[in-house]
Amino acid sequence: MPYQPPTHSVERSLRATTGAKVVAGVDEVGRGAWAGPVTVCAAVTGLRRPPEGLTDSKLLTPKRRLVLARELESWVTAYALGEASPEEIDAQGMTAALRLAATRALEALPVRPDAVILDGKHDYLGEPWKVRTVIKGDQSCVAVAAASVIAKVRRDTQMAQLGDGHTDFGFCDNAGYPSPVHRAALERLGPTPYHRLSWAYLDALPQWQHLKRPRLVAEAVRENALEARGQLGFDF
């Protein structure tokens, strides 16, 4: 399928229908990882023409993603990042952790957005934010695509730095996501301080199951229901 650049159509619609003057695109990375934080970027781009080749971060090579992220950081009108730690994910569940990270990013912007374009189908932000969810927004909306690239590069860099002290886990390559190297290291060494201890990967590691923390019941039921309907997307 030929490359289709993202546009400002959703942002223009929000401006026309709600009177929003400042619209932020929001995207997350790290939701499906075993280790590390979940990271959210909020980006405000205005209606300017985006850098060439902008799209969902997962569709870019690591080299191109890094170059584009550097360009975007000076091109966007404003951006900010927020994250929720593994401890917060374990204690509150992923939906609450996403809300926490996104709120931190949005509140760190120099100007409060009048509306938010959120990638995906599920609105994990809620009030008081005025949210428009867009499936595959990281491919179709300029601000969301910009947020996607910046968030991905920042988190990958962070995970590579964490990996310096835990080289067996391959964080430089897998960024804390499932991989054969990651699984083998877990079997031998057990989880690091950066691992999520409520995650199901521990169920397959009997020697480390004593470390597992119980998942929030409501969170587990909601995610199981979403997964059954094919609505729960994990990005890499």
Rank of each mutant, 00 (worst) to 15 (best):
A160E: 13
R155I: 10
S179M: 07
L106K: 09
Y79V: 04
A185G: 05
G32F: 12
F171V: 05
P178C: 05
T18V: 06
D90C: 04
E11P: 08
H182E: 11
G30M: 02
R183Y: 08
S13I: 01
P5L: 11
E87A: 15
G36Y: 03
A108V: 06
T133K: 00
P110C: 05
C172G: 15
A84W: 07
E187T: 11
A220H: 14
I117L: 15
K212N: 04
P6C: 09
H195G: 07
Q92H: 15
A16W: 04
L205K: 00
L59G: 02
W75H: 13
D27A: 12
V116S: 12
S140D: 00
T18P: 00
A220D: 15
G82E: 12
A35P: 03
T95C: 07
D138L: 06
Q92C: 12
K121V: 14
L81N: 04
S148A: 13
Y201Q: 03
H195Q: 05
V38R: 03
H122Y: 15
A96L: 14
E73W: 00
A146V: 09
L14H: 12
V149E: 02
L211Y: 01
A185L: 06
W208S: 02
I150G: 06
P178N: 07
G82N: 10
A146I: 08
R49Q: 15
R222M: 10
P113R: 00
A80N: 09
L202M: 06
G25C: 12
H195Y: 07
L68Y: 11
P6E: 11
F234Y: 13
A97Q: 08
V144F: 10
A108H: 08
A80R: 09
L162P: 03
G19K: 12
G170N: 11
R155Y: 11
A80T: 04
A160I: 07
L162T: 05
R64M: 10
A225M: 04
L47S: 09
L60K: 09
Q139V: 00
N174M: 03
G19N: 09
R213H: 12
E11D: 12
G53H: 13
V131T: 02
L226P: 00
L47Q: 11
K136M: 09
E219Q: 14
A115T: 08
Y3Q: 13
K21A: 14
E187D: 06
L106Q: 11
A84G: 11
E107T: 15
L66Y: 06
Q161G: 09
K21F: 00
P86N: 02
Q209P: 01
E83N: 00
A97D: 03
R104S: 09
P128G: 06
L197C: 04
D90H: 02
V23R: 09
L66M: 06
G36E: 03
A220M: 11
P128R: 09
Y177L: 08
W208I: 02
P62I: 03
A35R: 05
P128C: 08
K63D: 14
W129F: 14
G165N: 14
T55A: 14
T167S: 14
K21L: 12
P62K: 05
P2G: 13
F171L: 13
G19D: 10
I89D: 01
P206T: 10
I150A: 04
L125R: 08
A78K: 01
Y79R: 06
V217K: 12
T45I: 05
A33Y: 02
D164R: 15
T61V: 07
V23G: 08
F236W: 01
R49A: 15
T103R: 15
R70F: 00
A228N: 01
A43Y: 07
D168H: 14
